[in-house]
Write a protein that binds this DNA or RNA. Sequence first.
DNA 1: GCGCTTAGTGGCAAAATACCACGAACATCA
DNA 2: TGATGTTCGTGGTATTTTGCCACTAAGCGC
Lengths: 222, 222
Amino acid sequence: MYPPIIVTVDVVLMTLCLDALCVALLRRPNDPFAGELALPGGYVHAQEDGDAEDAAYRILREKMGIKPPYLEQLATFAGDRRDPRGWSASIAYFALVSPTTEATWQPVSELTKLAFDHAAIIQAAVERLRNKSAYSVLPAYLLPQTFTLAELQKIYEQVLGSPLDKSSFRRKIKELDLLDQVTGSFQVGNQRPAQIYRLKKMVTFDRTLSQSAPRKAARSGQ
Amino acid sequence: MYPPIIVTVDVVLMTLCLDALCVALLRRPNDPFAGELALPGGYVHAQEDGDAEDAAYRILREKMGIKPPYLEQLATFAGDRRDPRGWSASIAYFALVSPTTEATWQPVSELTKLAFDHAAIIQAAVERLRNKSAYSVLPAYLLPQTFTLAELQKIYEQVLGSPLDKSSFRRKIKELDLLDQVTGSFQVGNQRPAQIYRLKKMVTFDRTLSQSAPRKAARSGQ
DNA sequence: GCGCTTAGTGGCAAAATACCACGAACATCA
DNA sequence: TGATGTTCGTGGTATTTTGCCACTAAGCGC
């Protein structure tokens, strides 16, 4: 009845390389925008993908060989001006991984021209990450599974772009109560060993932290 | 190449009726789910709609006769299980209007079975409204263009579901600095007249309030 | 042992917030 | 005109949260 709409899923896969927030980009083999850099993405495979999140995971597996520990839907970018072939919709996701994984990373601060509106998508992802970092442990997904609080603080500072006070940071993290201590210590060299932590296993209801609790009801979970 | 994906735009249009948060629903004339209640929505019209937001506005105009003062993209609900016709994607928006407008409203607290996954979409919209209400003046869009602070506070209490302190509420609203005084007063009856306010005209960059400012840097933007 | 570096904690002042009370400005009615 | 009732609006105080800084702890190298 209507000309079909092009539906793709694109993923902003972020990590930290060399103390800078980076995003995974691929050079497009085909038109449109052949040869230019673009987010990893692709068509929805109606037979394989049960939903859009499945598609995002499949794309990351096929094109990046990665199963990210964190994935969330970002927004949908749709319209008739973003793809020369016609009206298109890109369901954008954003994912966080630890820096070990192999890929071609590009610092988000020095992005050249990208295919489609992918620059805008990346910008939205970075903003979302910044915002959520203020009240969640999201940046922890940018680290290896285990880490020290000092490492975590550095990541926060890089993501938020401003230095944090050690004491306040640790207090905040502790009261969020989303980390587990790992018995066993760690030394970087000639200093006191640091306690190692990992993210708690949790049912990721997605919307758990953002609610502001009434004052009297102190977090009583020991 | 692939079977086409059904792309629709659905809008959660909310208002306040009789002190309860309500959502606009329409009875579906056609299959699937003929006769059941559903969100106002429809296919994207590739010729008319420049982007998905255009489609949302068009749908509200055509089906509701409304141009809402607030509209924002909520999320995209996609998969092969939500529409019996096959793989589908619903780009969901949520909109707020003042209660004057005519429509068939349904309180969000007593929703019966709805078509598709529209119940889940509505739930997501309500959560988003609740969350954003904690740090924005979003609930003001549920009121007429001008209102008193007492009226605004009531709306907040209804949306958040808990009573607020008058003094704290007014302080918070004032420092958000998103309201303009309207010279001229108002009396409901036999009491002191209340100052009237309206929303400031503003460039709705969407993501302006949520950033937490460093302590020393007081909001100096006049 | 001493000096160095980083980890981790504690204290205090300042800011934000909850809670409560009081005065202000109207209307109504005697 | 003045007393009373109602809501508007603001100010004060106690409590909580937060920023800031200092200090101790625990390792290493010498």
